[in-house]
Amino acid sequence: MRYLQDRIFSFLICAFTALSFVSLLFVIYFIVREAMPLFSEVSPGEFIFGDRWMPIGYTGEPSFGIFNFIAATAAVSFLAIIIALFISIGAASFLCLCTGEGTREGIYSVIDLLAGIPSVVYGFIGIVVLLRIFFRVGVHTGSCVLAASILLSIMLLPVLISSCCESMLRARDEYLLPIKALGVSEWYGLATVIIPASWKNILLAVIPAVGRAMGETMAVMMVIGNANLFPSLLGKSETIPAVIALEMGTAVSGSTHYHALYGAGLVLMVMLFVINTAISILRRRLSRI
């Protein structure tokens, strides 16, 4: 009796666990299935490196090239990471040297509130605050790549601060006493020893955030202006998730346009997969050294 119950329960656990596999397989299958028809009409090279996105042929031939979207996705994420890293290392330095365990936990949980804010709210605040500032400064309509990056960088702060802080705390515990014993100010020690010592770990912890940044839809879409242009700091552009979110509603199911949007989704997924794989290889390499 007991034995039977155990078997049934273990089986249930396995079955539910299998759902994770199944859902991953299903996602990949359906994205690939819907993307494939595209490539019978547009070659992958043309799709990835073409910069004309003309889903419906109002003026001339329809054309499907997502190069600018790819570039914008990469540019916005990269810039966001740089900004976020700058703020995070500063904040982590503060948390390392100026706070005790208790205060730090308190500040952490305040910062964590940022992670709970929905991205559409970030987009909303971006429009009513950031874009107005950019507009006043002279950017046409205010929408631009930089605005999107700033917004995105704020969204990345909770993850980045906690991983920066974690590696810096480890370095601090190792080096701070010797630094103080030399009579050097702790801030000087932080800049010359602790930050350089934790640099590698910070970088490794940070790169996964690229993935999150590249997949972000709402906040970026609401402030980037959504024009098919090659990204420039104060110019409009459009990312892959934004294209999908904006055009999926109007694309006729089964049309080339529809398949092209799945194609764009597939490209995004492959980009993220490549990045994640590269990181895990890199991490294994570095941890071996």
Partner: peptide
């Protein structure tokens, strides 16, 4: 100068972070 610079950076970083949290919630 380096000490001061880093200190400034640290205060700036935490300031921006906490300021943003406070701003978003208070604003909305």
């Amino acid at each position: 100068h380096l000490s001061k610079l880093v200190k400034l950076w640290a205060f700036l970083g935490i300031g921006i972070t906490l300021g943003t949290v406070a701003f978003i919630f208070l604003f909305i």
